[in-house]
Nucleic acid binder design. Structure first.
Lengths: 171, 171
DNA sequence: TTCTAATTGAAAATGATTATCATTACTAGT
DNA sequence: ACTAGTAATGATAATCATTTTCAATTAGAA
């Protein structure tokens, strides 16, 4: 399939319907249990074994993951974690901007630990593949538009949709 | 949460997530029955009274409408139209790009007749005001990114979020 | 340790969307 | 205009992700 070791690599791709498990985290550093606890406390939430496990699994696992996938992964490690807890925690983390929700088309919501460096997504509507990209020119022009209307930008959502190379050839 | 504080209806601008009902169509021209039929035929769909009614109601009604709202509106005119038909037809029209799906946050999908001149949205996170804008430079750079990864773009979603002038002055 | 509110898991509920299927009705070809 | 063939329809059930409920458990402050 394809290699992906870091999000700094321009070639990193994510395949959605049949997720490739060789994706690694955006974050090279490993998190100690204390790191995990601190992150949870910063959200004004209590530290529980479930939350530690969920956050750890999220950090170590694939970049774009659904709540369901994360639940199944966590289940294998500790079957005492219910999916309601996974959903609840993910939602809480999204509110605290610790994770970012990705709603691509009508596919189930995917989550990623909010990356330090901003990037946008381009999705293949045929196979669900996601390509991440950064483009300073686009960002610059967005700022120009904002200035033109007197807005002070806080964030943005840019999602490109199209057909990837291999799907173009298939049909 | 933003969901509960963004419903200020400033003026005649679009306000989310519960848009004002005095919104008018993008399209000034009225469509004759023949116009409607032609549009449907162009989608390779058969002309039926239901589809004519749905399309007509969509054209005459508010800009951003949910499938449910459209169904209820159509029901009042002809109760022989089922909501499955409304959903199916909207989905078909979305596929043919006759309408555009708008997924704002986690609210139900809203539909708009695809405007001839493409535009994107810039939303004030304080008051919910929406500004529509066009920027060819951004579009061009999007194409460049797509080309770079071998994608053939079909569409995109660009939403800018920030604070508008008046909200900046308020504090 | 004790207390209390936060958290949990299982299950049920919700809400939007999609599929099923018997019936109806467009429309191309005669 | 007539028919055959197939697309479209509406009522209903099914699906799917997500949210809520609630009784039992647990974290963490006092």
């Amino acid at each position: 399939m394809f290699e992906h070791t870091s999000r700094h690599n321009n070639n990193d791709e994510t395949v959605l319907p049949i997720p490739s498990n060789n994706e690694t985290s955006y974050f090279d550093e490993s998190w100690t249990e204390d790191d995990l606890k601190q992150i949870i406390r910063k959200m004004n939430l209590k530290v529980t074994p479930q939350r530690i496990l969920i956050l750890q699994t999220l950090h170590e696992g694939r970049v774009h993951i659904t709540a369901q996938e994360l639940y199944e992964k966590v289940q294998k490690i500790n079957s005492d974690v219910g999916f309601a807890t996974v959903y609840r925690f993910l939602k809480g983390m999204a509110e605290s901007r610790v994770v970012t929700e990705l709603r691509m088309g009508s596919m189930p919501t995917r989550y990623e630990l909010t990356p330090k460096k901003h990037h946008d997504h381009m999705t293949c509507t045929a196979c669900g593949k996601i390509v991440e990209f950064q483009n300073k020119n686009i960002e610059d022009h967005q700022e120009k538009v904002a200035k033109q209307y007197g807005f002070k930008l806080t964030h943005h959502v840019l999602e490109l949709y199209g057909i990837c190379t291999s799907c173009q050839m298939k049909k």
